[in-house]
Design a protein around this nucleic acid. Structure first.
Lengths: 222, 222
DNA sequence: AAAATAATAATCGTTGAACAATATTGACAG
DNA sequence: CTGTCAATATTGTTCAACGATTATTATTTT
């Protein structure tokens, strides 16, 4: 994990490294990222790090305060509501308009299987990852690279919120079978029904996340 | 237009300045942007310019080739198709789910009026701008800042494509009254009908743009 | 003359240092 | 305890440098 392949440019690689730390919870919301400290830690120059900061700020994972520095974005109810709004717009439409034999359906099915297997051994981390794959596959039904990229960004932002919650397993486990139901409906060619199921699914998930979020004691504090 | 307000950071301001040049057609697709030349022209350092480049590359307006530099993105049929796919996903859903008395409807109506007025005096530039405002207002019906930001980005990319076309007035003028019809349906509370109208509208617009694009002689050449 | 090759120049990628501007900290006086 | 002001740290931006890669020109070879 030290010096990777130099295939791509430095700034995007740096951004990815930081992004991974963010979604892994190693950097907590509200925390300030010192340019000198991070640049020495990551063995890069301040300038290169600043390029990465700009990327992540644009992605919504960092917040930039002039002359004060960059901070890990602090998720809010508003941001969660906004993200779920985006998800419903994109995912539901993708399912409603899907071609039932789209290759992504196979990935959806595989993600359901992986989640089921991980669930039996209480591997909630894998369940969560499989769920992410499932929904990314849904978006892929729309066959748009721009939507895919946008969704990945939104998903990363949502994972930042999840990091604040105490029991993230509850956020994914109940939905495994709902995911399976959506795949079945897609297989049967019932796209409208699948979209409707997904919509209520997402609304319920949003409520659950918001409820868990409201239970956080010191939210709003750095 | 020289040195603006220093409210925001330099990199985003630089990005905006370059973005404006891109959609104004001052920088043509395929053209390489020299770091030293642009940085001296814009009176900024190479490092600051590179930060702006990263932003614009992420937006899809520039393309980055390792060790070769950044180039103005070259629109393709594939990118136009992709962008219209995104537009249908977002705009149609936004209209279908709209609250008829949403403030954005007023902006839609105002945009139609401005387009009509500009059309009578053959001011096609204003017609085009009003059309952009109209569709941005549509997206705003969904009340999502993330969707708004994403749409703005996509719209800028599309305008880059428009810059290649010979007679852009044909791309907007025929749609003024179709826009008006959508506003009327929204006023009447007929959101599904409005969404359906918008969908066929966008499909037709896509065909027109693709047809005009296919008539470009030397596309694919730098 | 045409093609291949070598030398040269130009550009990018990244770094480190520098300095001004702004923000934070801490001492001190009231 | 509170407000003021200097001292300190951090960001914002620029500049110069140099290795690495690419583009260009010159040279050689066939």
């Amino acid at each position: 994990m030290t010096d990777q392949d130099m295939t791509s440019a430095l700034a995007p690689r740096l951004a990815e490294a930081i992004r991974n730390k963010l979604i892994a919870g190693e950097l907590k919301p509200g925390h300030r990222l010192s340019e000198v400290k991070l640049s020495t830690d990551l063995q890069v120059s301040r300038n290169s790090l600043r390029e990465a900061f700009r990327l992540l700020t644009k992605e919504g994972l960092l917040r930039h305060e002039p002359n004060r520095g960059v901070f890990v974005a602090i998720p809010s109810m508003a941001s969660i509501i906004d993200i779920y709004r985006v998800r419903r717009v994109i995912e539901c439409r993708a399912v409603a308009q899907a071609y039932p034999k789209h290759p992504a359906v196979g990935r959806m099915r595989a993600a359901v299987e992986e989640a089921r297997a991980a669930s039996t051994r209480s591997d909630w981390g894998t369940v969560g990852s499989a769920n992410m794959v499932f929904h990314a596959a849904i978006v892929d039904l729309a066959d748009s690279e721009r939507l895919n990229a946008f969704y990945l960004q939104i998903a990363a932002e949502l994972r930042l919120s999840f990091g604040l919650l105490d029991s993230p397993e509850l956020l994914h486990e109940p939905y495994i079978e709902l995911n399976a139901a959506i795949v079945e409906k897609l297989d049967a060619g019932e796209m409208q029904e699948a979209a409707a199921a997904l919509e209520s699914y997402l609304l319920q998930s949003e409520r659950t996340v918001l409820a868990a979020f409201s239970r956080i004691p010191d939210k709003g504090k750095a």
